[in-house]
Amino acid sequence: MKAICVLSGGLDSTVASLIAKQKGYDITCLTFNYGQQALKNEISASKKIAEILGAEHKIIDLNFLSEMCELSECGLKTGDIPSISEENLDNRVVAEQTMKKVWVPARNLIMFSIASGLAEAICADYVYCGINEEEASTFPDNTMEFMDRFNKCNEYGTLNKVKLEAPLYKMNKDEIVKKGIELEQKLGLELLKYSYSCYHENPEFIHCGICESCMRRKRAFKLANTEDITTYKE
């Protein structure tokens, strides 16, 4: 059995990949380069995680998406990345504003389509991703509606009807941390400590601690009542 894992090296995609491993799939991990600020850290994290999983790792360059990020003035490309307080993470109005500043045009649609094409080429039936309930509250391409419609397209767009799998879709970040730790213990692997969530490029895997992705990571470990092994600047 084969599966493609879309792996940014972040918390969600790491745990989703771990679930694919636990299910016994022969995994190929894909990391996408669209000119994001944290590219070097994401590649380092995803390479290490793929190595631990015993998976093949591929980096896909998306120069055209990088150009679209410039046109849309996406903060992940320009470096104009907003910060957010913990108390505002669940404030829909504030969180939607920060989302718009880091929105990459059609990112998941493009990445999942490429992953589906590779899956079809290697006779894999599934593409695993880190779509989850917490981010679905503000990112429309993290919702079940998006996933259901994407899978409907794949019924016509791939001969083997490749299916997008989102094993975390009912989970918030703290539940994802708990699931990751549970699977690490079950499989005898250590992955979470190598994951990288920050929107910024930082040396030695240090997280900024104030961007939305860092704030959600911080809160997740706190709510999971487990030690946060991440090093933050703030």
Rank of each mutant, 00 (worst) to 15 (best):
D148F: 12
Y194I: 03
E133H: 06
D148K: 04
V104H: 00
M215V: 11
N108T: 09
K40R: 15
T31C: 12
I176K: 03
I229G: 01
T78V: 11
E42N: 05
I181Q: 08
S8D: 13
M111V: 10
T158W: 04
V162Q: 01
S66E: 13
K152W: 11
K163E: 14
E42T: 00
A95D: 09
R217Q: 03
P203A: 05
I49M: 14
K218V: 07
L118D: 03
G75P: 14
L164K: 09
Y34F: 08
K23H: 06
T138G: 05
Q97P: 04
I84C: 03
K186G: 05
C208R: 00
L192Y: 03
A115R: 00
I122H: 09
Q22A: 13
Q97A: 09
C129P: 05
K101R: 15
A50K: 04
V6R: 02
S46H: 13
I131A: 15
A224E: 08
S195D: 06
F32P: 08
R149M: 01
I114H: 04
A106H: 07
L7C: 11
S213K: 15
P82H: 12
Q97Y: 03
L189F: 09
I43F: 08
I52L: 10
F150Y: 12
S116E: 12
S72T: 13
